[in-house]
């Protein structure tokens, strides 16, 4: 059994309303120097599957390649 962590985020240039709101809220709390805040999804997968298969899962279902990028981190044996 392998363990994967998948991060799904909006592609560069796509407006992320929750991220922009968090960015403003942090500035309102007095935090200075915030360049940008992006909010995405974090997915944990435990499966008897190889990296190629997990990549396919991302392409087909977990991310929408039209608007999102994904990054897979292999966590090793579960």
């Amino acid at each position: 059994m392998a363990r994967y962590e998948v991060y799904v985020t909006y592609k560069q240039g796509i407006f992320d309303p929750p991220g922009a709101t968090a960015e403003r809220a942090l500035a309102n709390l007095g935090y200075e120097g915030i360049e940008s805040v992006k909010i995405g999804k974090y997915i944990q997968i435990e499966a008897d599957a190889g990296l190629e298969t997990v990549r396919e899962m991302c392409e087909r279902l977990l991310a929408n390649p039209v608007i999102e990028d994904y990054r897979i981190v292999t966590e090793g044996e579960a």
Partner: peptide
Amino acid sequence: LTEAHLLPGALLRNTGL
């Protein structure tokens, strides 16, 4: 229909949240 690729593009969260 966009997810099924029958139509191009995608529908994002409303800008005003």
